[in-house]
Nucleic acid binder design. Structure first.
Lengths: 337, 337
DNA sequence: CTGTTAGCGCTTTCAT
DNA sequence: ATGAAAGCGCTAACAG
């Protein structure tokens, strides 16, 4: 039924080992023999069985990538960075979606490990003790990508979320805003959600601005939650003049909620965020935001992983990439009054 | 180093076969024995090797999904449908990105086949003879998802693109529009791009409206191309009063190009499209569009694939799912004049 | 440069 | 209900 390396060997009149050599581009094969084998392969339509290969060689040349949420635009771009580098080093990559559910994240990690991937990239989301425990059982390297763990035990590639938030809010302050609200992400997540919130507080503090409970609403990183939080801010007696959203998608919700209420961005209210997904330029006014170097995060993480897999020396396993403020049209000086 | 089934057997004082049975939930194991084995597994931290399993059983319980472009919002939703059904039938799914490049699509299919997936889902994009040839070498079932092949030889799940386009344009016509432009996708792609274009022409024809070359611009399904095409339409002496875009993303580009030119949607120009990605409601005005049942496409395709993998009877291998017009705010009756 | 021969870790008859 | 043993298709020494 299916044609094996043995069939090819017989057809070409050589041994299995020789066929294996040509398939693996081992130079120790006479050109003429190689040709014979190649022809037999072609004639028989032989396709190497990667499963058997993996078992015999104990390498699969594939790395698993777990994505918290396929529908999140951030990850698409990070994935591109991962892929480009993976291709460069001849690794296949297989993506697994985890639906933003912790239990599934862990299940997926285990599945990937059972499949004997040579390495693992774990993207985004918060890292709990349960995650760490799953990671510990791994015999292959794992690097966190666009997230990091509090304990600092895992290799990771990420930005400084607190500083990014600090920079965004500072920009607002430098434009004269004093009533700045924030739509946070999950405060349960220390490395991203909470860090961004901390950045907001510190920027306020540094400027001597009071922290107000009613200027903070928690969202879930989604558009709708950005709208909801903003509607809340709009009905406050003392309406904020600027809103900082923990990510772009919520910021776009904020912009639309403001517009739907008959107000203008940025004339009445400024909006700023973090991420710089493609959408940021696909909204009117275009969104001012702190850009994460998504492609680079993926690329650097994958590069780090290759080094780990090949047991090369790496001097820094926890890398922080720089972010950059993209000034567009959604922010303006605070309105007088 | 790594603990194998043999280690567990020794630890539990049973044979490998017995361990295998408990791992595979084979009922032919005395509860007491099962308990002993489970304990040994726990104690040793045994993790079954899926590669060895796959080789021995000739099944991997995983299906490969090739995605033309991870950053395309459509596929995220389709993927969710696939996943839900896959989980239901206990298949793992591995996603592979093909970067919208035909050569890579084919390479990825081959890689997946080498990895001995039990089935394959091929999403979107146009199916060429080269694709078909790669598909033909497969010994496992393949179903096309959100696309179909012209020759009709492959199982597939899709919508009727021509009819969807026809319906969109007919809506415009019924609102009195007579100057209707179209931003097409790739006309090279018979099943999607060209079919949607055909639907446009037929709707025009049925209404006795003339077909004008200068009312058609080709885009590439991206936002920017939608903007460009629209800018072209705007400078026409006889400006269209409505634009039909082959997909939502280009339509949003059209809306912004119109707005950027100081005109209003829908008062000055109506915009309609096909897809209904989340973004359609994340734009102002919200986009009127013909919705593809993306989740269902994924779910039905995966269900069909499971039947094929289990060699169950299926009476219809080429399914067309219904579409539905979502009327929102981007269309209005044609302006007088 | 090429062939022989052990496994890789597991499933699966076939016995018992 | 359990065990023994033969592979699954391939790679990797080792010999020659």
């Amino acid at each position: 039924m299916t044609v094996t390396i043995y069939d090819v060997a017989r057809e070409a009149g050589v041994s299995m080992a020789t066929v294996s050599r040509v398939v693996n581009n081992n130079p120790n094969v006479k050109p003429q023999t190689r040709k014979k084998v190649l022809e037999a392969i072609e004639r028989l339509g032989y396709r190497p069985n990667a499963v058997a290969r993996g078992l015999a060689s104990k390498k699969t040349t594939t790395v698993g990538v777990v994505i918290p949420d396929v529908s999140n635009a951030i990850f698409a771009e990070v994935a591109r960075g991962i892929e480009d580098i993976a291709n460069m080093y001849h690794y296949n990559i297989i993506l697994c979606n985890a639906d933003k559910r912790k239990e599934k994240e862990i299940r997926v990690v285990n599945t990937l490990l059972e499949k004997q991937v040579d390495g693992l990239l774990f993207m985004g989301g918060s890292i709990t003790e349960d995650h760490l425990e799953a990671f510990r059982t791994s015999t292959v390297p794992i690097v966190l990508c666009s997230t990091a763990d509090e304990t600092g035990t895992m290799p990771s590639v990420d930005i400084d979320h607190e500083q990014a938030a600090f920079d965004a809010v500072s920009r607002l302050i430098s434009e004269g805003h004093r009533k700045i609200a924030m739509i946070t992400g999950s405060l349960q997540d220390p490395t991203t959600g909470y860090a961004r919130f901390q950045g907001y507080r510190k920027a306020l503090e540094k400027a001597g601005l009071p922290f107000r409970e009613d200027y903070v609403r928690a969202g879930n990183y989604r558009y709708e939650s950005g709208m909801e939080a903003t509607r809340y801010f709009l009905q406050l007696k003392e309406r904020p003049t600027a809103i900082f959203a923990a990510n772009d998608e919520m910021a776009i919700g904020a912009i639309h909620a403001i517009q739907d209420a008959g107000l203008r961005v940025p004339e009445d209210i400024s909006v700023i965020a973090i991420d710089n997904i493609r959408l940021a330029e696909m909204v009117r006014p275009e969104l001012t935001t702190v850009a994460q170097p998504m492609y680079d995060i993926g690329a650097v993480a994958m590069r780090l992983l290759t080094k780990l897999m090949r047991k090369e020396h790496v001097d820094e396993t926890r890398v922080i990439l720089p972010h950059e403020l993209k000034v567009r049209r959604s922010t303006a000086p605070a309105p007088a009054g």
